[in-house]
C-alpha cells in the first residue's frame, strides 16, 4: 500500500516534470513563430508596395520613399564572406597548433585568451575599429594596397578609391577578429575528440604532422568544424554595432573594398529611431525579415550539409 502510494506520487511528479519541460520547448518554438509573424505583419506594407523589386533595387531614398535592399544585402554577404575567408584558416591554424604541437604549459593560457576574445562586447570592437584600426589602415595599409594593385586589372578595381580608413574592408577585418574565437574554440574542442589511438596509428606508420592533421584529424572532425564555421558566420551576418562604426554606412554598391558600404543590421540600427512614415519603418522591418531569412537559410543549409556528411559516413 505504502509502496503503491509512493509509486503514484513518483508518476505524478514525473508527469508534471515532463509537461514543464515540454512547455519550455514549445515556448521557444512559439517565440520563434511570434517573431516571424510580427516581422511579416510589420513588413507587409513594404512588401505590398515594392514586391520583388525590393530585392533588386539599389536605391534607398527616404525622401521619395523608394526603398531597395540590394546594397545592404550585398554589404552583409560580402563582409561576412571576407571575414570568414580570413578567420577560418587562422582559426583552424590556431586550433591545430593548440591540439597538436603546442607545448603543454602554453595550451591553457592561449586557449583562455582566445575564449576571452569571444567575451569582448561588440561595441568595444567598434570603438577600437574606429579609433585604432581605421586610422592605421588609412595611413599605411590602404595606400599600399592601392599602389600595389593599381595597375593590375580586376584587382585595381577591388582596391580603388581614396583611402577613407573605414569601409567594407575594415568592417570585414573587424568581423574576422570577432568570429575568430568562435571558429577557434569549436575547432579546438572537436580536434580534442579525435581518439589518440587513431593519431598514434598514423604517426606509427610514419605520417608527418601535416599528414596526420590532413588525413586523420580533419576528416574525423569535419562535421564539428562546419558547425563551428557556421556559428561564426551566424555572428558575422548579424553583427551590428562594430560594423556600424566602421563600414561607412553608404547605401551604394561599389566594386572597391575600400569604399563605404552598409549592411542590413547597420541600416536598421542607424535609421530605425528616426524613421518617420509607415513605409520607411515597414521597409526597415522588411530588411530585418530578410536578415532573418538569410540566417535561417544558411543555418538550414549547414544542417543539411551535416546530415549529408553523416549519411555518407554511415554508408
Amino acid at each position: 500500500m505504502e509502496r503503491q502510494r509512493t509509486l503514484a506520487r513518483f508518476r505524478r511528479s514525473d508527469k508534471i516534470f515532463r509537461n514543464l519541460t515540454f512547455v519550455a520547448a514549445i515556448l521557444v518554438l512559439s517565440l520563434l513563430g511570434a517573431v516571424a509573424v510580427s516581422l511579416v505583419t510589420g513588413a507587409w506594407p513594404a512588401m505590398k508596395e515594392f514586391g520583388f523589386d525590393f530585392l533588386t533595387t539599389e536605391s534607398w531614398n527616404p525622401v521619395t520613399e523608394k526603398f531597395g535592399a540590394l546594397a545592404p544585402i550585398y554589404g552583409t554577404l560580402v563582409t561576412s564572406f571576407i571575414a570568414m575567408l580570413i578567420a577560418v584558416p587562422i582559426g583552424l591554424g590556431i586550433a591545430i597548433f593548440l591540439t597538436e604541437s603546442c607545448p603543454m604549459p602554453l595550451r591553457r593560457p592561449i586557449g583562455a585568451a582566445i575564449e576571452l576574445l569571444a567575451g569582448i562586447p561588440s561595441i568595444i570592437f567598434g570603438i577600437w575599429g574606429l579609433f585604432v584600426l581605421a586610422p592605421l589602415l588609412q595611413t599605411t595599409v590602404q595606400p599600399a594596397l592601392i599602389a600595389l594593385f593599381g595597375n593590375i586589372p580586376v584587382l585595381s578595381g577591388l582596391f580603388a578609391g581614396p583611402p577613407y580608413g573605414i569601409g567594407v574592408l575594415t568592417a570585414s577585418l573587424i568581423l574576422a577578429v570577432m568570429v575568430l574565437p568562435f571558429v577557434t574554440a569549436v575547432s579546438r574542442d572537436v580536434f580534442e575528440t579525435v581518439p589518440t589511438s587513431l593519431k598514434e596509428a598514423a604517426y606509427g606508420i610514419g605520417c608527418t604532422r601535416w599528414e596526420v592533421v590532413r588525413n586523420v584529424v580533419i576528416p574525423h572532425t569535419r562535421v564539428g568544424l562546419i558547425g563551428g564555421v557556421m556559428l561564426g558566420l551566424g555572428r558575422a551576418l548579424g553583427e551590428t554595432m562594430a560594423v556600424t562604426f566602421v563600414i561607412g554606412n553608404a547605401h551604394r554598391i561599389s566594386m572597391s573594398l575600400l569604399a563605404p558600404g552598409t549592411t542590413i543590421s547597420a541600416t536598421i540600427a542607424n535609421e530605425f529611431t528616426e524613421a518617420d512614415g509607415d513605409l520607411y519603418t515597414s521597409s526597415l522591418i522588411l530588411l530585418g525579415l530578410l536578415l532573418f531569412l538569410i540566417t535561417m537559410t544558411i543555418l538550414a543549409g549547414a544542417r543539411f550539409l551535416l546530415w549529408r556528411i553523416d549519411q555518407g559516413m554511415k554508408s
Partner: peptide, 24 residues
Amino acid sequence: TSVQWPVGIGAKGNEGVANNVQQT
C-alpha cells in the same frame, strides 16, 4: 531626417561625424 547621399561616408551621431572629420 535621412536622405540618399550622392557621395561620402556616413557616420553615426555628431560624435561619429566629428571623429571621421578629425581623422580624415
